[in-house]
Design a binder for these strands. Structure first.
Ligand SMILES: [Mn+2]
Ligand SMILES: [Mn+2]
Ligand SMILES: [Zn+2]
Ligand SMILES: [Zn+2]
Lengths: 148, 148
DNA sequence: ACACCATTCGCAACATCGTTGCAAATAATT
DNA sequence: AATTATTTGCAACGATGTTGCGAATGGTGT
């Protein structure tokens, strides 16, 4: 009676995401993508290294993050402390072309970094002669849960 | 005939700045502060290491930047590429308490980072529950000189 | 000008982070 | 199942940043 669910290859959301991005599905990629899906905050390379119970080589994590970035699965968030964080992209991010028009927030209490998708970027009017390509807004403060 | 200018100890702007910040004036600090004064773009640790003709130890540069930061002589600018840049503060920045309410710009062509003092920070309205402490705005694009 | 003390400097040693080349392992394709 | 393309782990390396400590130097008072 388990034949159907068995053979029908329960393609999890994760596998689908990977295939949709033209990435061959491997153990490491599955696990790292899983971490991003079950954690709504952003993750650094170090975070992943710790949270991934099963040990993957550091290099594999670097390369996986690189691959995810290039395929538009994740985007990077610059921080003041010289440690890049990564967060899942919304569905409409494809191959390097991102639509991350939102603000990033870093909690000074718990340290978590989140994407505030509902806060859109302000228009920045630059002096004559400058051309805008991209705007990054980084707000630090105390997050919802740390404020009780 | 050089007695006067000689003994009168030509206290350069640099020495005054250092003393005003309660920093003893040394060769390294003079040179690094000089670099900041004659370069209007922001400088990274690496930039300073290269530009300072006379060779200072890496550690000295780290410690000098740290001291300048603490005394409010410079402020740091986070970048996407994991390399912190530093820029001179305006005069009203004292001991850790900064008034850097301006936007930072990184040129994708020449790589220079500048403070756009004339562009003030936008107000960012966060969702309920979040408290704002600091806002960083980082704009990338093409700078004035690279646009002809 | 000199001596004293506090601060800073240079060096060595170390830790962390990130990159590259290559051979073995694994995934996709036929 | 065999072939091919991709990914992985390992080792080695470079870059970056930190710390401890003795030597050098700056500030200060005589
Ligand atoms: Mn985001
Ligand atoms: Mn600035
Ligand atoms: Zn928090
Ligand atoms: Zn430029």
């Amino acid at each position: 009676m388990e034949k159907k669910t068995d053979t029908a290859n329960i393609e999890t959301k994760i596998d689908l995401l990977l295939k949709k991005s033209n990435l061959s599905v491997t153990g490491g990629r599955r696990r790292i993508l899983e971490l991003f899906l079950q954690h709504d905050g952003a993750l650094s390379h170090g975070d992943i290294e710790k949270k991934a119970g099963e040990k993957f080589d550091r290099v594999t994590i670097y390369r996986t993050l690189q691959a995810f970035l290039e395929k538009g699965l994740i985007h990077s968030i610059p921080t003041s402390d010289n440690s890049i964080r990564y967060a899942l992209c919304k569905d409409d991010c494809s191959d390097g072309h991102h639509h991350d028009d939102h603000v990033h927030f870093i909690c000074t209490a718990c340290g978590t970094t989140v994407c505030l998708e509902e806060v859109t970027l302000p228009a920045i009017k630059l002096p004559r002669g400058y051309t805008t390509e991209q705007v990054e807004v980084l707000v630090s403060g105390v997050c919802k849960s740390c404020n009780h």
